[in-house]
Amino acid sequence: MSTVSTPLADSAIMLRRNLKHTLRNPTTMFNAVLFPIVMMLMFVKVFGGAFNVGPDVDYIDYATPGLLVMAVSYGLGATATAVNDDMTKGIINRFKTMDVSRGAMLTGHVVVTTVRCLVACAAIIGVAFAMGFDPDASAVDWLGVIGLVVLLSFAAGWLTVAMGLAAKTAESAGMAAVPLVMLPFLSSAFVPADTMGTGVRQFVEYQPFTPIIETLRGLLGGDLSTGDAIAALAWCVGLAVLGYVWAVSTFKKRA
């Protein structure tokens, strides 16, 4: 077998292993898929009428892009915990004796995180349409939405894997992902940034999730801002590179 096919085959095995673990853990599936839907119903049906997001704008149309980002962030704690479990319970050492590609051990977690995020986002879109979501996106715009969600999920996956590797315990690994879960609440996901107070508004405008949400909103609304799109791509690529370098460096030290 070639040097290229061996890591690919090992990655496929790790992916299948991690998928089985996800499917066998109801809590993981709830946090990743069902809880974002619960949050969607709560914000749109309970709080939506209290938010002023602009004239002639249905709140479901405004909130759906932010809920897509929330769906990505809510499944990350499970990834950090799973990675830390592999590191602290001796699974990695067992894989090393089996001559499994080291890169495959990390890649499997990243890919299954991306898949889980895509499933959650698909569920959000389906429920949004059932609630009256009416986007103006073209086919090209929808491809852009899918591409950005994949890129965000991939970047968040690497960053979360790095957090899981760096944490000392599974509990601290899960807590390390909490800031990523909370960031969508401190963004333009549910209300426009210009309605917020001084200090909070500046944080919201310059944190990574806001340009990503605004880019998704622009794609779905048929009114994409080039500045937001460039910022969104830059944040995703930057987080992916940071997560990858951090994860590989920590893995080499601890594995």
Rank of each mutant, 00 (worst) to 15 (best):
T6M: 08
L8Q: 00
A12N: 05
M29C: 14
F30H: 10
V38F: 09
M42W: 13
F43K: 02
N52W: 11
I60R: 01
D61Y: 07
L68K: 03
G77D: 11
G77T: 09
G77R: 03
T81W: 14
A82C: 12
V83Y: 02
D85T: 12
D85P: 03
R94N: 14
R94Y: 14
R102H: 05
G103D: 11
H109W: 13
V110A: 12
V110F: 00
V111A: 15
V112L: 11
T114C: 07
V115C: 04
A123C: 05
I125T: 14
G126M: 08
A130R: 11
G132D: 01
D136Q: 14
G144Y: 01
G144V: 08
I146W: 05
V150H: 00
L152F: 14
F154I: 12
A162D: 00
M163T: 14
G174L: 10
A176Y: 00
A176C: 10
L180E: 03
S188C: 06
V191G: 05
D194G: 03
T195N: 08
M196G: 04
T215I: 06
L220Q: 15
G222W: 08
D223V: 10
T226G: 04
A231P: 02
G238Y: 01
Y244I: 09
W246C: 05
A247F: 01
V248L: 06
T250E: 14
K252R: 14
